[in-house]
């Protein structure tokens, strides 16, 4: 297991480094590039970034590192909350659909996931603002109170964005969970172990919960990493709906101002977070399924 972890960490670190290099090279077309060779500038910038020095933003006239740290306090809680919501909504619905396979509940859920897959996430957020904020006046329609000032208020302003960000993820997970669960139940081997579990005194319901669920979770776990990474990136769009001061608003402002240092630093922070998401899901998968540890990756 330790060998697998080290290999996976090293693999992802190299991938991240390559990705950051690509980002650096593309943004190097900007006029503010100085005259040192590319690799020297890259090494200098990356070395500084690893020590927390991302340079000074021309746009905000402030250190880029401080800007990013401040914005991460919005984006990361948002992405984590959305991922947890997507899991909490998607997996039970998927299990329910598999349980009621072919019944009306399954078909309704199937239709719902098809519709959810077609609705642009950020537009769903706008609908939530119109309904929950403007009509019902339950939650703020946008903006953010810093955590230090009012933690409850900060959390409240993340509720609608988190649901918005979670919707497509929940649909994807529900679909994957349903299919994996149906496979696990149809699979002859699965039937065997479920029968064995029943003989041992578990009810059918318990048997499916204990064994089928565990087997079905493996293929689902394999997609959670890329999904989590995608949610982190998509928060850029969702922050825009709710006027949240996260990494997304920062990077879009920097694109408008063509502030390369801010874009580079922000993308480094985003991609590092996404790599961590991939790594966590991989480790979780390897912990759940020892067979994965012998391969180079999922």
């Amino acid at each position: 297991m330790i060998g697998f972890v080290l290999k996976r960490v090293a693999g992802l670190a190299i991938t991240l480094l390559l990705a950051i290099l690509v980002v650096f090279l593309v943004l190097d077309f900007l006029p503010d590039a100085d005259t040192a060779p590319v690799w020297q500038r890259f090494a200098g910038w990356l070395g500084g970034a690893l020590l927390g020095d991302f340079g000074t933003s021309a746009m905000a006239n402030a250190p880029v590192g401080a800007l990013i740290a401040e914005r991460m306090a919005v984006t990361l809680p948002l992405a984590v909350a959305a991922m947890l919501l997507a899991v909490a909504i998607g997996l039970p619905l998927g299990v329910l659909a598999a349980w009621k396979r072919g019944a009306p509940a399954d078909r309704v859920l199937h239709g719902a996931t098809l519709i959810a897959a077609g609705v642009p996430g950020f537009w769903f957020g706008m609908l939530l603002v119109l309904l929950v904020s403007a009509q019902l006046r339950w939650l703020p329609s946008g903006g953010f109170v810093p955590w230090g000032q009012n933690p409850a208020g900060a959390a409240a302003s993340l509720i609608l964005p988190a649901f918005t960000l979670a919707l497509p993820g929940a649909a994807i997970l529900a679909r994957a969970m349903r299919d994996a669960m149906v496979d696990a139940m149809v699979d002859a081997k699965a039937a065997d172990f479920i029968r064995t579990a029943q003989i041992k005194g578990l009810s059918l319901r318990q048997a499916i919960w204990k064994r089928g669920l565990r087997n079905a979770l493996l293929p689902v776990l394999a997609i959670t990493g890329p999904l989590f990474a995608l949610l982190i990136a998509t928060s850029i769009v969702v922050e825009n709906v709710f006027y949240l001061p996260g990494l997304g608003r920062l990077i879009l402002a920097a694109v408008a101002e063509r502030d390369a240092l801010v874009i580079r630093g922000t993308l480094l922070a985003l991609m590092a977070s996404m790599s961590c998401a991939l790594l966590m899901a991989d480790l979780l998968g390897a912990w759940a399924d020892p067979r994965l540890r012998t391969r180079s990756g999922p």
Binding site: T15, V23, L27, P226, I236, V255, R258, L267
Partner: peptide, 28 residues
């Protein structure tokens, strides 16, 4: 094996990130 590494790499470049890069370098 190559595909698995390429998959990691590509998942760090969702459409939004690529579009941000292109928009900054060449205009949206």
């Amino acid at each position: 094996r190559a595909a698995s590494h390429a998959g990691d790499f590509l998942s760090l470049f969702p459409a939004l990130v690529v579009a941000i890069l292109i928009a900054t370098a060449f205009g949206p």
